[in-house]
Amino acid sequence: MADPRLEVIGRRLAGVKKIIAVSSGKGGVGKSMIATTLALALSRRGYRVGLLDLDFTSPATHVILGVEGLQPEEEKGIIPPVAHGLRYMSIVFYAVDEPAPLRGAAVSEAIIELMAITRWGELDYLVIDMPPGIGDATLDMIRLTPGISFLAVTTPSRVAFETVRKLLRLLRELEVPVVGVVENMVMNPSSRVRSQVEGIGIPYLGAIVFDPEVEEALGDVERLMGTRFAEAVGRIASELSQQIP
């Protein structure tokens, strides 16, 4: 028996130039904030950008974007709706406000299903908000999407960085490209994370100072893009965009 979905995933992504999976070892480091803001920042630089929320059990990008009343269009699969200029896909279109208690195998199935039916069209970037850790979603995306690259998010905390180090090691062993590491929620600037990241030969994309304004800007994209946080993410977007001609 053959799973027909696996055959078409590559085709669904054929028009996407670069896939960036925003990932971390632990939760709570600001992945969703960075993924969403990075997607918006790239879009505002004139790129065609998609945002995929793959954190099925704890989706959050819709809260950051303030998405309401959108639904994918059905046309030989599904076409993600446009939210603030982004082609946007999230499990909340189907789970709405309900909790989605999914085991690993179910997460895998849902990822395969969504990747097989979502027609992204032509995009310069597809930014993916990954669930934390190196479990099913990470392994599936590496298996299913050749050409994927990762952006790892850490905080200055040794607890967070220790888990990111393992993520980076796994990616290196699997020869998956890493565009770099972002140090988020910095309160007391230090070069410790930077030197460790550079020590393992991975680009350090920058430190983002903890910005209390962000919480107030959730759901209000214009306000969000005016924060110091978004300014810092914008610099990272500019740096990353130099990698695409």
């Binding site: 696996l6 078409v8 059905e74 699969g77 599904i78």
Partner: peptide
């Protein structure tokens, strides 16, 4: 027309 996407997978497999 989600069936279309699945049919595409079947034909291609």
């Amino acid at each position: 027309m989600h069936e279309w996407a699945l049919a595409e997978g079947v034909v291609s497999t």
